[in-house]
Write a protein that binds this DNA or RNA. Structure first.
Length: 1039
RNA sequence: GGGCCUAUAGCUCAGCUUGGUUAGAGCGCUUCCCUGAUAAGGAAGAGGUCGAUGGUUCAAGUCCAUCUAGGCCCA
């Protein structure tokens, strides 16, 4: 073991590239897995990024956390396999390819050929995966990309099919006609996820429409009465099927000042009909049920039925928040409408074709795009006198996020997973899950589960896992659980088949029920099912790797950004529960988003995207990683920019590096190489530094157990600062002397910091390990074990004493600053008052004397003629006892003669009298502050004080001059380019009497300090080093 | 429109769970000090109506309500 030369300056990005080479060449990641093979497994699942675009900085964020915890756990002895994964399927990939090929829609794809189109999709995925791989490697995210799972792999599809068959066999995979958002241009339904991206603010016509009542009590009593409905989608009036009211709401039958009679919700009457309207009667919604009315357009034919078409229905969801409290029902275009009308057995009529146009046979609007038809329809309503009011209505309406076509809520056949059937189970699984932060569990995610709707699984698209259901003309369904299963029905050719469209579409077989030919249904599945199936599909389970899967289910840890709440976090839990009756993860870390420097979301559109690789090439991957993990809370949105990243580098990483360089410099200059540690006779400061290092190892350990990287990072930063700016600063002399105990102590402390930092900043810590700590047994910091703090000595009392020492030093510096006497001028004494002072060991007092540059320290407390005592209330203690009376008691305490009061308190307990009542006051009830009397230079804070005696004498002055000269020579050594260990010859002369005394009296001390082997008074003609103020001239030469 | 999160110094953020009387850190700024880790380090200062309003309390940055602004998710 030898210390290598550590340069004071470091090019972080350059160093990182070297380390990447080392890791690869020495296979460190593989060794870290092999080393921990016998340890307990800590299961991590990689959420596959969608390979449909370039990676962004937000991908780095998630990957930092996905790397920190596995590295940490590995150092703690766990085995943490990390299998990479790529999400390959889905509309995003298709759209990217469509754009590349300049396609306008599905017709173009079919013309081009599905096989060719899907081949292009596959290529596109491969290209983007390469970019992700490059980013992943550059940032030092250790994940096995050679064994990555790809959701488009045949074995993966086999597993997905297997799970779908399990769900199908439970009766939970069903086809249904439901209303879902649908893009007429793309010709497919959209997932909720896609929907969210496409809301646009638009202005629609909102209309109040009269529906004349055609029978029943109301119209008998009030002839001409009409229902009044409100809608923002006039085009749906064509297929009006019913009107719905809330059974528990009161409705007014009211007359407008124009003499018309309407039924509207009582709560909305004034706002809709005007304040002048008069109420003729009031009924409940319940009483309106069954009231027949005349529909606005009678162009659509309804099938013959006994169901109550064009009457009033009851529906709890109707509110009186806006509109009229009566909702027009068109079940083909609204999920709630459909549910309400279904309950009454009403038929679903749909005059709009899948391309978004009204079918040709509809008068006036046949062949017109649904949204465009609004104005024509409003005009007709106006002409017929059934339009009551017409207002522009601004709202956000979903559009296709890619082609900006207005979406239509559209009833169409789709395949669903009936997740509502397992809702209670999902809620129970969520209860067992640890969320970080905890608020997601019962908040965002819990709400989502409570409002669970069935999973719309199918997509009428091309590049996706085909839905493995075959259907015959009779409608018998056969769900196939993999290619092997398919081969049972359709022959062995299926075994080797690419299980994508169009190949799978060509496979037919005799229906097992009736023998008719069964062919596959046309749909593919939502790609979110693919990623949610990764716990087993990544291993091709159950077709292969059965043990591997069983040993790694469920996961101990998953981590993604918060937008995955309803994405991957949900699909993982849902599929796990559907297939294995158990959620697939135990702990989930939910990250906040990364924003730009102005707090805006990063988007291509705004041009504020930070590209990860250039960012890391500028600041270093460690810097970016440290920033992500430590700056701010992981689960809160955070701003990232060049300045903020540069700052963390300077503050913590460079301070750490400087300390390492310091250690290396002095160890090497005294031929100390770290092979033998001498820790036998440590100083108090040595004991403190080591004790604090082990405390750090413990506290970082505890913080990371709670996934709290911010706390861990703050602890590390504090320790690095303590080590550098207190331990090293105070121990410099010992390092100059090559003190083996000091070198051993700093060696050990740095080793511990290096280890606890390693999960966060794997590059710089590896560099340091190679330079200082490399041994034959442990060739990488990432193969080392977490520092063993359990058996180490952590001395809390010493820590408190050092903390007090440092506070006193701060007071000393503050007093120096106000005194105007330079710190280089020694002073005779300082007086200190602080609780616990009497126990401060001599060695720590020495630190204070040295830092403050005084010859002696004395305790202030006992010499009462020098001190003023003040006493004030401790509100926390008094408040608990006296509540309302606290302020008067506090005032009474302040009014006491402080000196006598404190004396009484210290004797026993004191008494204050308020309004004739006496109260016992104890020491706990007050805060006592002792400050020196006037005439001293004093600094105090929080009841602790230091006072400087500013009196000077000749000797003190001489010592001050000696120190000035020392400093002058040291400066000259440096500017002359001498090495720190060069010995010198000093020739001096003095023109000032004081200086002469100082040089004579303290010459030996100065000589020792500046490494002078010869110290002589003599001829200094031509000296470059002269100080007129001091009256000193000096000639330096190398010895 | 609904739910959740956030708002503290010029900037980036702690503190809020468990209320206690001078609200902190880092960066930046001014002045000074120290100096063989030195393109570092330290001290002092300027800079805060702790988003707004109201409430609870002897006491509110901290608890409650409402509002405003931003973010996220949903509709």
């Amino acid at each position: 073991m030898t210390y290598r030369d550590v340069p004071a300056k470091i090019d972080l990005p350059l160093m990182e590239r070297e380390i990447l080479g080392f890791w690869q060449q020495a296979a460190i990641f593989e060794k870290s897995l092999a080393k921990s093979e016998d340890g307990p497994t800590w299961v991590f699942y990689e959420g596959p990024p969608t390979a449909n675009g370039k990676p962004g900085t937000h991908h780095v964020e998630a990957r930092v956390f996905k790397d920190v915890f596995p590295r940490f756990r590995t150092m703690k002895g766990y085995h943490v396999p990390r299998k990479a994964g790529w999400d390959c399927h889905g509309l995003p990939v298709e759209l990217a390819v469509e754009k590349e090929l300049g396609f306008a829609g599905k017709q173009d794809i079919e013309k081009y050929g599905i096989a060719e189109f899907n081949a292009r999709c596959r290529e596109s995925v491969l290209q983007h995966v390469d970019e992700f791989a490059a980013m992943t490697e550059r940032m030092g995210y250790w994940v096995d990309m050679d064994q990555a799972y790809w959701t488009m792999d045949a074995s993966y599809v086999d597993s997905v099919w297997w799970s779908l068959k399990k769900i199908f066999d439970k009766g939970l995979l069903v086809q249904d006609h439901r209303v879902s958002p649908y893009c007429p241009r793309c010709g497919t339904g959209l997932s909720d996820h896609e929907l969210a991206q496409g809301y646009e603010d638009i202005v629609d016509a909102s209309v109040f429409v009269k529906l004349p009542i055609t029978g029943g009590k109301i119209v008998e009593q009030f002839p001409g009465a009409a229902l009044l409905v409100w809608t923002t989608t006039p085009w749906t009036l064509v297929s009006n099927t019913a009107a719905a009211v809330n059974p528990n709401v009161e409705y007014d039958i009211a007359k407008t000042d124009a003499g018309e009679i309407f039924v509207v919700a009582a709560a909305l009457r004034e706002s809709v009909l005007g304040e002048d309207s008069t109420v003729l009667a009031t009924v409940t919604g319940q009483e309106l049920e069954g009231t027949p009315y005349q529909r606005p357009f009678n162009w659509v034919e309804f099938p013959d039925t006994d169901a109550p078409i064009h009457t009033v229905l009851l529906a709890e969801y109707v509110t009186t928040e806006d509109g009229t409290g009566i909702v027009h029902q068109s079940p083909a275009f609204g999920a709630e409408d459909l549910a309400t009308c279904r309950a009454y057995g009403l038929p679903v009529v749909n005059p709009v074709a899948p391309n978004g146009e009204f079918v040709a046979e509809i008068p006036h609007v046949g062949g017109v795009f649904f949204k465009t038809a609004d104005s024509t329809l409003v005009d007709i309503l106006k002409q017929e006198g059934t339009l009551f009011k017409h207002l522009p209505y601004e709202h956000s309406y979903p559009h296709c996020w890619r082609c900006h076509t207005a979406l239509i809520y559209y009833a169409q056949p789709s395949w669903y997973i009936r997740t509502t059937a397992i809702k209670d189970q999902l809620i129970a699984q969520n209860e067992k899950t640890n969320w970080f932060p905890d608020t997601i569990k019962n908040g965002r995610f819990g709400d989502w589960l409570n409002n669970n709707v069935d999973w719309a699984l199918s997509r009428n698209r091309y590049w996706g896992t085909p839905l493995p259901i075959w259907r015959c003309a009779e409608g018998h369904l056969t769900c196939v659980g993999g290619r092997a299963d398919l081969a049972q029905y359709a022959g062995d050719a299926a075994l080797e088949m690419d299980p994508h469209r169009p190949f799978v579409d060509d496979v037919t077989f005799p229906c097992p029920t009736c023998g008719d030919t069964a062919s596959r249904v046309p749909e593919v599945i939502d790609c979110w099912f693919d990623s949610g199936a990764m716990p087993f599909a990544q291993y091709g389970y159950p077709q292969s790797n059965v043990e591997k899967f069983e040993a790694s289910y469920p996961a101990d840890f998953i981590c993604e950004a918060i937008d995955q709440t309803r994405g991957w976090f949900y699909t993982l839990m849902a599929i796990g529960t559907l297939v294995f009756d158990e959620s697939s993860y135990k702990n989930v870390l939910c990250l906040g988003h990364i924003l730009d420097e102005d707090g805006r979301k990063m988007s291509k559109h705004l041009g504020n995207v930070l590209e990860p690789i250039p960012l890391m090439d500028e600041h270093g991957a460690d810097a970016l990683r440290w920033f992500m993990a430590v700056s701010g809370s992981p689960w809160q949105a955070r701003r990232v920019g060049h300045t903020t990243i540069a700052e963390v580098v300077r503050k913590t990483l460079l301070t750490y590096w400087n300390t390492v360089a310091f250690q290396s410099l002095y160890a090497r200059s005294s031929q100390w190489d770290g092979s033998v540690l001498t820790l036998d006779n440590p100083t108090d400061l040595d004991r403190w530094a080591l004790s604090e290092a082990y405390r750090l190892a413990r506290e970082v350990d505890e913080a990371l157990e709670q996934f709290d990287t911010q706390r861990a990072g703050r602890l590390i930063a504090e320790y690095v600062d303590d080590l550098s700016n207190w331990y090293v600063r105070r121990s410099r002399r010992r390092f100059w002397d090559g003190d083996a105990v000091a070198l051993s102590t700093l060696h050990q402390c740095l080793k511990i910091v290096t280890q606890v930092m390693a999960p966060f900043t794997p590059f710089i810590t590896e560099r340091v390990w190679q330079d200082l700590f490399l041994t034959a047994d442990v060739e990488s910091v990432h193969l080392s074990n977490w520092p063993d703090w359990q058996t180490a000595t952590i001395d809390d009392k010493l820590n408190e004493q050092v903390a007090l020492t440092r506070r006193i030093v701060e007071l000393g510096r503050a007093a120096r600053a106000t005194s105007g006497v330079k710190t280089r001028q020694p002073l005779q004494r300082a007086l200190v008052a602080a609780a616990g002072w009497s126990e401060i060991p001599e060695s720590l007092q020495e630190q204070i004397r040295d830092e403050v540059n005084v010859l002696a320290l004395e305790e202030l407390g006992e010499s009462s003629e020098l001190v003023d005592v003040s006493v004030k209330a401790n509100f926390k203690s008094l408040g608990a006892r006296f509540a309302k009376e606290t302020p008067v008691i506090a005032a009474a305490i302040a009014a006491q003669n402080a000196a006598e009061f404190v004396a009484a308190l210290r004797e026993n307990s004191a008494i204050v009298e308020v309004g004739g009542t006496t109260h016992n006051i104890s020491l706990d009830d007050v805060v006592i502050t002792e400050v020196p009397r006037e005439g001293w230079t004093v600094a105090s804070a929080d009841g602790e004080s230091l006072a400087l005696d500013l009196a000077l004498n000749d000797d003190l002055i001489a010592q001050g001059i000696a120190r000035d000269i020392t400093r002058m020579i040291q400066d000259a050594r440096k500017t002359s380019g001498f090495d720190i260990s060069d010995r010198i010859v000093v020739t001096w002369s003095a023109s000032d009497a004081n200086a002469l005394v100082a040089l004579q009296t303290y010459g030996e001390r100065i000589a020792a300090e500046v490494l002078a082997t010869t110290w002589q008074q003599g001829d200094t003609n031509g000296a470059t080093l002269r100080d007129e103020e001091l009256g000193v001239s000096i000639v330096l030469a190398k010895a």
